[in-house]
Write a protein that binds this DNA or RNA. Structure first.
Lengths: 141, 141
DNA sequence: ATTTATGCAAATCGTTTGCAAACCT
DNA sequence: AGGTTTGCAAACGATTTGCATAAAT
């Protein structure tokens, strides 16, 4: 994975520094998208501004995706699709927790096809979509 | 529409003040979700804090929904589903513009069914979903 | 040697809150 | 009067930026 990431950064004219490697390592280890606060706690001595700057670089290089939580005041970050595959998010409306989910392939396919049509008939060129499933997690039921 | 809104506020123990009426009026007139900045410009003398407070009241009463834009740093507001019907958003990844769209009924229905299954098998109780279609609008093609 | 990344502190931006005056019933 | 809403200013929290130092090529 690190090799792939390094390659993507190189293609974008960016270095794969120790800090970036550490951040990517955390994201690889995490079972779900992480907030900046979580990332900061995971590594002592990690500085906010550097973290934000590196996340921006990683996003620009297509290595990381920024995803919105329930209350959109705190962003979360996860590895990009090339690493995690296409998926969506289950968001708990009570505690804000997030889990990754994938749709059945046929449904995802139908959806994709429908969206392309809907987008083009509105004059939009479809790039991608994001789908969040809002509900209550096991603990918050 | 204002009658319906008044009723919902009343049910929530809230008044339908002139300011709230004005805000709802703007949202009714708008062809798409509006930002706080847009709402502020639309009415001279409208104060930020009052606007935010009233939006909170309207959201709590189920009259308004808050929706996330592309770069989730600026929220947008629109009338709730009871007024606009269930729909999704086309978001321009270049200019950030937003348009409302609906999926074909059968697709929406299949999606709903699939999501319920996916959610429950992850231990979540489905509440609702949000689907954003990201692309480039006509002008940004 | 020159460019790029980092840490630290200060600045920004959207949003929220405290408080006193205005409003409604 | 008694509780609610409003305006204004200050407070907040997430994110960004300026600048001097450290690291990488």
């Amino acid at each position: 994975m690190h090799l792939e990431v390094a390659e993507r950064l190189r293609r974008d004219g960016q270095r794969y520094t120790a800090l970036r490697r550490a951040i990517v390592g955390e994201l690889i280890a995490a079972p779900r998208p992480l907030t900046v606060r979580e990332l900061l706690k995971s590594r002592r001595g990690l500085v906010q501004s550097s973290l934000y700057r590196n996340l921006a670089v990683l996003i620009a290089a297509g290595v990381v995706d920024r995803v919105a939580g329930m209350q959109e005041d705190t962003a979360r970050y996860e590895l990009a699709e090339f690493a995690l595959g296409h998926h969506h998010h289950l968001v708990c409306m009570s505690c804000g927790d997030i889990a990754d989910v994938a749709l059945p392939k046929t449904l995802e396919h139908d959806l994709e096809r429908g969206l392309r049509k809907v987008a083009s008939s509105a004059g939009y060129a479809l790039d991608h979509h994001r789908l969040d499933v809002i509900g209550r997690c096991r603990r918050c039921r």
